[in-house]
Amino acid sequence: MTLSPWLAPIVWDGTYNLDILNEQFHQRGVRIGLTTFVIRKYKIFIQNFLQSAEKFFMTGHKVSYYVFTDDINAIPNINLREGRSLEVLKVTGYKRWQDITMRRMQLIRDLISERVINEVDYIVCVDVDFEFRDSVGVEILSDIFGVLHSDYFEKKRQAFTYERRDISAGYIPNDEGDFYYIGGFFGGTVKEVYKLTNHCHNAMMQDKAINIEALWHDESYVNRYFLYHKPTKILSPEYTWNYFSGNPAVVKRKRVVHVPKQYSEVRD
Rank of each mutant, 00 (worst) to 15 (best):
L3R: 14
W6N: 06
L7Q: 13
W12R: 11
T15D: 14
I20T: 15
I20Y: 14
N22T: 13
G29F: 09
R31I: 07
R31W: 12
I32W: 04
T36C: 09
F37V: 03
V38L: 02
N48L: 07
N48S: 08
L50H: 01
Q51K: 06
A53L: 02
A53Y: 00
E54T: 04
T59S: 05
V67N: 00
V67H: 00
F68G: 01
T69D: 04
D71N: 15
D71Y: 08
A74W: 00
R84C: 03
R84N: 05
R84S: 04
S85V: 05
E87N: 15
T92G: 05
G93E: 06
K95H: 14
K95G: 07
Q98H: 15
Q106Y: 15
I108E: 03
R109I: 11
I112L: 13
Y122T: 02
Y122G: 00
D127P: 01
D129E: 13
D134T: 01
V136P: 06
E139N: 04
S142E: 11
F145Q: 02
V147T: 09
V147M: 06
L148T: 00
F153D: 00
K155L: 12
R157L: 13
Q158C: 09
Q158D: 11
Y162V: 04
Y162E: 13
R165T: 13
S168K: 06
D175A: 06
E176Y: 08
Y180I: 00
I182G: 07
F186N: 01
G187C: 04
V190H: 07
V190I: 10
K195L: 15
K195S: 14
N202L: 09
M204I: 07
A209P: 00
I210Y: 12
E213W: 15
A214K: 02
D218E: 14
Y221P: 00
V222I: 06
V222H: 02
F226K: 01
L235Y: 02
E238T: 04
W241N: 00
Y243M: 08
S245C: 13
S245L: 09
V251E: 01
V251I: 13
K252L: 13
K252R: 14
K254E: 03
K254Y: 05
H258D: 05
V259F: 05
K261G: 01
K261S: 05
Q262Y: 15
E265S: 05
